[in-house]
C-alpha cells in the first residue's frame, strides 16, 4: 500500500460524544418522572434497588436515543438544531451508534428484570421498541400526528417506575402516562410555532407545516383541555391529595390561559412580538411538568409523616 492516509483529528470521538448519543436532556425528564412513579407507588423498594431501577430506566431511554440518532442521521444533518450531533458531525459512525444502542438496550432491560421484576423489564423493552420502531422508523416521517405518537414513548417512564415497585399497572400509573401523553403535544407544538423551517427542510411532516399554523394553535388548546382533565383525575386517585390538587388547579389555570392566548392569535400577531405568547407557553409547559410530578412526590413525602393523601 502506497497511499498515505491522513486522519482528521477533529473527527476522533471523545467520551462526551458517546454520552451525547444518549440524549442526556431527554434522559433527565425520563429519570425524574420514573423516579416519581417509583416513589409514589404503594410498595416500598430498597433504596439501592430503586437506584439500580432508575439507572436502568435512564440507560434504556438513552439506548432508545442512540438508536433514534442511528436511524435519523440523514435528517439530523439537514436541521440546524441537530446537525452538530455526534453522527452528522462525523465524530461517531452510524454503526457504532447502532451497536451502543442495542447493547445498552439489552443490558438495561435484563438488569431491570433482575433488580426488580420482569414485568417492569418488559415494559421498558416495549418503551424502547415503541420509540425506535413504531415512532422513529414507522410514523415520524409519515404523519403530522408524529408528536402525539412520540409523546406516548416519553410517557412510559413513570409507568415503568411504578411497575418496578409494584410489578403491575394500575389506574394511577395509567393516569401518570396520560398526563405526559397529553402534555407533550402542546409543549412541542408551542416550540414548533417559533422554531420555523427546520422540520420542513428535513421533510418531516410537522403539524404546523401540514395542517397549518392556525390549526396547530387550536390543537394546542384542545390538548390543554384534555391535559387539565387528566391531571385533575390523577389528583382524585390514591397518589393525589389536597396539595397536589392545589398545585394542579393553579398550574392548569395558568396553562389554559397561556394556551388560549396562543390559540387566539394570528401568525401576524406572533411575528409582531417575536412569538412572545408561544415562548411563554413553552416555558410554562416545562414548569408545569416539573410542578405536577413534584406535587405527586411531595404528597408521597407527606404520607411518610402521616400527612398527605386523601
Amino acid at each position: 500500500m502506497s497511499d498515505a492516509t491522513s486522519i482528521n483529528h477533529e473527527l476522533e470521538a471523545g467520551f462526551g460524544d458517546y454520552f451525547a448519543l444518549l440524549k442526556p436532556r431527554v434522559m433527565s425528564l425520563v429519570v425524574f418522572t420514573a423516579l416519581v412513579g417509583l416513589l409514589v407507588a404503594p410498595v416500598s423498594v430498597h433504596p439501592f434497588v430503586a437506584l439500580v431501577a432508575i439507572v436502568c430506566i435512564a440507560v434504556g431511554g438513552g439506548a432508545a436515543g442512540a438508536l433514534n440518532m442511528w436511524w435519523e442521521a440523514d435528517i439530523d444533518a439537514l436541521m440546524l438544531r441537530t446537525r452538530a450531533r455526534p453522527i452528522p458531525s462525523g465524530r461517531v459512525a452510524r454503526g457504532e451508534a447502532l451497536a451502543i444502542g442495542l447493547t445498552l438496550a439489552a443490558f438495561s432491560v435484563v438488569m431491570l428484570g433482575l433488580a426488580t421484576n420482569f414485568f417492569a423489564a418488559g415494559l421498558l423493552a416495549f418503551t424502547i421498541f415503541f420509540y425506535v420502531v413504531i415512532y422513529t422508523m414507522g410514523l415520524k416521517r409519515r404523519t403530522p400526528q408524529n408528536i402525539v405518537i412520540g409523546g406516548a414513548a416519553g410517557a412510559f417512564p413513570p409507568m415503568v417506575g411504578w411497575a418496578a415497585a409494584t410489578g403491575g399497572v394500575s389506574l394511577e400509573s395509567l393516569l401518570m402516562f396520560a398526563l405526559i401523553f397529553a402534555w407533550t403535544p402542546p409543549h412541542f407544538w408551542a416550540l414548533s410555532l417559533f422554531v420555523k423551517g427546520d422540520y420542513a427542510r428535513a421533510g418531516v411532516p410537522m403539524l404546523p407545516e401540514v395542517a397549518g399554523r392556525d390549526a396547530t394553535r387550536r390543537h394546542i388548546l384542545a390538548y390543554s383541555l384534555v391535559l387539565a382533565a387528566v391531571s385533575l383525575a390523577l389528583g382524585a386517585t390514591s397518589v393525589g391529595g389536597p396539595l397536589y390538587m392545589a398545585v394542579a388547579l393553579v398550574m392548569n389555570a395558568l396553562f389554559l390561559r397561556a394556551a388560549r392566548a396562543v390559540a387566539r392569535r394570528s401568525d401576524a400577531d406572533s411575528d409582531g412580538d417575536r412569538h412572545r405568547a408561544e415562548r411563554a407557553l413553552f416555558r410554562l409547559s416545562l414548569l408545569y411538568i416539573l410542578f405536577m410530578f413534584g406535587a405527586l412526590l411531595a404528597e408521597a413525602g407527606l404520607k411518610s409523616f402521616g400527612m398527605g393523601g386523601w
Binding site: H9, E12, A13, G14, F15, G16, Y18, F19
Partner: peptide, 13 residues
C-alpha cells in the same frame, strides 16, 4: 496531541 486526549477521555470514561 489533541488526538491522545480524546482517546484518553474515551478510555477513562
Amino acid at each position: 496531541h489533541e488526538l491522545h486526549r480524546r482517546r484518553a477521555s474515551r478510555n477513562y470514561g
